[in-house]
Design a protein around this nucleic acid. Structure first.
Lengths: 199, 199, 199, 199
DNA sequence: TATGAATGAGACTTCATTCAT
DNA sequence: GATGAATGAAGTCTCATTCAT
């Protein structure tokens, strides 16, 4: 079905544009007109590709959620130490938020605007995501690699730090995307202090 | 000045309610009707206290910004090691975001909705805030207390972690506000790992 | 009754201010707040002196109408030729509109905003006013002083010309109020042309 | 281009209706609902054709201004004596105000409601219009056809008389539009008096 | 596929007006 | 005499959405 092919391309183009615009102005403030104009056609045409505005948001949310989940699963399946896995997960997470800050901002910020089903998908995805990281942390604590701390809040806090790059990372500011990803990982894993400073 | 008193009380009551509602639904989705109803009077009455909806947002933003700045200055003026100061700042920051999550969510999320003047105030405030923390980090690095890392991105990342509590902290979840504050501090300062794990 | 005295003074001050503001912005666009602020007190205070906004307009209209009527009657009662009387009436009319352009603009422009009773007063006053002038014109035609033309439309047209000074007369523009009044009279009476030009 | 055609037709239909309603009630008192209802559709539909209410007023103003300017230019380009030209201009002017009294009332009365750009267009147009007539008057004075009088105020006064017909002309009152136009011209040119009466 | 045209719902805002103090 | 506080009605404007073409 070449038609399907085309449709999906178009749909994704629209979603890209929508992520950009929703991210810049906020879902509510962004207008379907904004999106349509950026695509070069009219408001009404969007309804050929999407049921309605909310569906675009839901698609974006699902897309972002799926991306994170896939990354996570890949890391979990890898060989390596617990520490390696946590490093990998945080790096992937931060990298995603650096690469597509708008998409992931929307994903974060507009939860309350999602239609119920999509919100539930997002929330249960998030629970699973955080839960997986928390489990990993507990493994590390049991191994003695990680200091013993409440696992889930720790996971949430680290993910919160990694999320934040979407808001503040600027490529012109001197650090490459890779360097910022590594900074996040280093801070989460080693903290501010030099090893000796704490002893 | 009983009159002055009353005015300000009313205005602040409204702002409290507004923070709550803007925080829950988002500034754009929240209705002045929502705010008025929650206050027990009419939409129109709000215009007795505020020029318009945006002014409420601006007031909220200024309020939150001032709060953070004041906290920061107090900590900077205290005696103590660099590490103590950083700990104190992060603790205050996280505590503020735990105590008034809605207010600070609005502060974070709705920058693009602020009138220009208020946005500029917020942004220059943020620059100063981050700048002060980054300076402190550099002092600590020079002292050898902190590992040498890019200071400003580190400050942004840590603040990002502390910000995130507003989104995920739930009092029912077992940890007290104080404990969560300390968790953030510990993670930022010491990282996940036990000191030995890295050596 | 000294109270009455005071009241009336105040009322008239307010009407002056109101004429000014209604004249500048239009009755509908002008706000009671505008008027109150210009008087140095609050909106609500105006209701001590007037039933409501419309009553202010009505008072203004009656005031202006009475003024014109009184002038007219005085001229009609004077000795002199028909031509003298017409000259006098037009001069008075134009002078009034030069001296208090705002008041008379309101009087002209806001008929549709008047409460019914006041509108009827204004309209019957106008009929009487125009009727009186038209009668005078007819007398002049019968005498052979005036060229024979439809009397009422002529009266309306001449009054229309005299009215217009409220819109365009500017004291700085070189002509005194008196000179403009006389210009109107001369144009109405003698027209543009020199006597010889028409013969 | 059938589309273009349709658009403009619709827009113009709306403007016609708007002129009618703005003229009857005043721009401020007139409601977009009034206009929409008179057109047979919804308030919101108007926004498909116009940015906002003010733009409708501006379009009306431009339309009226253009009409007058075009008339004037045509008369100025004609052969004939100075007197002929002045007669023609005044006749056209009065005729326009008789034919479309509402449109030209709006044009006159609602200057203060115009957006700045449109107001400036109107005002500079008016200056040009009056200036052209005043120049003609000066030519006539130099020729000896016209009595020597201040030219610009004379032009303003005559135009003011011609304007006034929009307020008072009623077809039922016995005079045809043409007759009223000629009355205005005769009064302006020859004044009230018979030639002999002044000598 | 895409658009022109229109709608309906709802939002923000303004303002004359009231009334207890 | 005057004000602070509040209301209700109305008006402008925005937008997602629809539908015939």
């Amino acid at each position: 079905m070449p038609t399907d092919r085309l449709d999906n391309t178009r749909r994704e183009e629209i979603l890209d544009v929508a992520a950009e615009i929703f991210g810049k102005k906020g879902y509510r403030a962004a207008t379907l007109n904004d999106v349509a104009k950026a695509m070069g056609f009219t408001r009404a045409a969007l309804y050929y590709y999407f049921e309605n505005k909310q569906e675009m948001l839901a698609a974006l949310s699902d897309m972002a959620g799926l991306h994170l989940m896939t990354q996570l699963d890949k890391r979990l399946a890898e060989d390596g130490t617990t520490l390696d896995k946590v490093r990998g997960i945080l790096l992937d997470h931060a990298s995603a938020f650096i690469r597509q800050p708008r998409l992931f901002s929307v994903f974060q910020a507009e939860v309350s605007e999602l239609p119920t089903a999509a919100r539930q998908r997002l929330e249960s995805g998030e629970r699973a995501y955080i839960g997986a990281i928390a489990s990993l942390l507990e493994v590390g604590m049991d191994e003695g690699t990680f200091a013993r701390r409440p696992a889930k809040p720790s996971a949430l806090a680290m993910v919160g730090m990694a999320n934040s790059v979407a808001r503040w990372y600027r490529p012109q500011a001197g650090l490459s995307a890779k360097e910022v990803g590594e900074l996040i990982v280093d801070l989460c894993v080693g903290g501010l202090t030099t090893p000796s400073a704490l002893s």
